[in-house]
């Protein structure tokens, strides 16, 4: 991977730069501007200083949303990563069945997010949904529109349904890169299944798994559409995650100042995680390059 130094390459990047500057830099500057001002509609702005930041940092609303968000991300990672690896280990290695599994597993990934919400909204309803109806017949009280625990379980199961395949597909790609010779060597050594997993498969998957974990964390951290469609953030505020809360504030109440301050803090966290993600990825690239 030896690249030549060529500063003229900048010209090739210019279109992207212009486009992304238009759609990212200008809005972000606006957000910064709004975050230090108060407005009473009609573009009348008043200087508010750091008031909104101060207010938000001491408000339970944001910390609660952040807490729910972190809990949600942690739970889905704890389920999806092991489950994804488990599924990947059981996928057919080659042939028609491998393609068949790949296609079916990819399907949930390609469904529009609001339709994912709709699917589970219908699926979970006690009167018309298969899941809700079955649970009801089994005598389990389940109503995701009224019971916060049920709402949480629905949202989590939905996310597991939606995204586990991604972890599985990435882990599978990692497994595919292991030469058969490794397994033969392990067989000669009569290594146990666990040892094969621990010392051959897991190290080979480590890189892609890292990517999978970070991707899942990022995407779950900004999840909006699916829980919004299913629960609308409720019952009460039980499933109001960061994005849902922010949209409520920004577009529902049109509180420009607080919403902008909220956005900025949210974005800072995202920047931090992106940086970790990038550092991990470049280090992986380097290791592979050696």
């Amino acid at each position: 991977m030896d690249k030549t130094v060529n500063h003229k390459a900048w010209f090739l990047v210019l279109p992207v730069l212009a486009l992304v500057a238009f759609s990212a830099v200008i809005p972000l500057m606006t957000v910064v501007n709004y975050s230090v001002q108060d407005t009473f509609g009609n573009n009348q702005f008043f200087w508010a200083g750091l008031e909104w930041f101060d207010e938000l940092l001491h408000s339970e609303r944001m910390w609660d949303a952040l807490g729910r968000q972190l809990a949600f991300s942690a739970i889905i990672l704890a389920i999806e990563v092991p489950l994804g690896i488990f599924v990947a280990l059981h996928m057919p290695k080659r042939g028609v069945w491998a393609s068949f599994c790949l296609v079916l597993m990819s399907l949930p990934l390609l469904i529009p997010w609001n339709v994912v919400g709709t699917i589970w909204q219908i699926f979970g309803r006690v009167d018309i949904g298969l899941l809700g109806h079955t649970l009801d017949k089994l005598g389990i009280a389940y109503n995701y529109t009224q019971d916060s625990l049920a709402a949480w379980i629905t949202v989590i199961v939905m996310d597991v349904w939606h995204w586990t395949s991604l972890v599985a597909l990435l882990a599978y790609a990692g497994l595919q890169s292991i030469p058969d010779a490794y397994y033969q060597a392990a067989r000669i050594d009569q290594a146990s299944r666990w040892k094969v997993f621990r010392y051959i498969e897991l190290p080979k998957m480590a890189g892609v798994l890292m990517i999978a974990i970070l991707l899942r964390f990022m995407d779950s951290f900004m999840i909006y559409t699916e829980p919004f469609v299913v629960t609308g953030g409720g019952p009460g505020n039980a499933t109001t995650f960061l994005s849902i809360d922010l949209v409520k504030m920004a577009l529902g109440q049109f509180d420009l100042g607080p919403a902008a301050a909220f956005s900025l803090m949210y974005f800072l966290v995202i920047l931090l995680i992106s940086w970790v993600f990038y550092t991990v990825m470049t280090n992986l690239d380097k290791r592979e390059g050696v």
Binding site: V31, Y34, Y266, I270, L271, S274, Y278
Partner: peptide, 30 residues
């Protein structure tokens, strides 16, 4: 293919936009 001034930072900046929550941008876009 090339190394150029600030290439890594630019590449990283692009990534942050892929990772940015649409919710943050909804209001300013509007």
């Amino acid at each position: 293919r090339y190394h150029f001034m600030g290439d890594k930072h630019l590449f990283f900046w692009l990534l942050t936009n892929r990772m940015a929550p649409p919710a943050v941008f909804a209001l300013p876009f509007f």
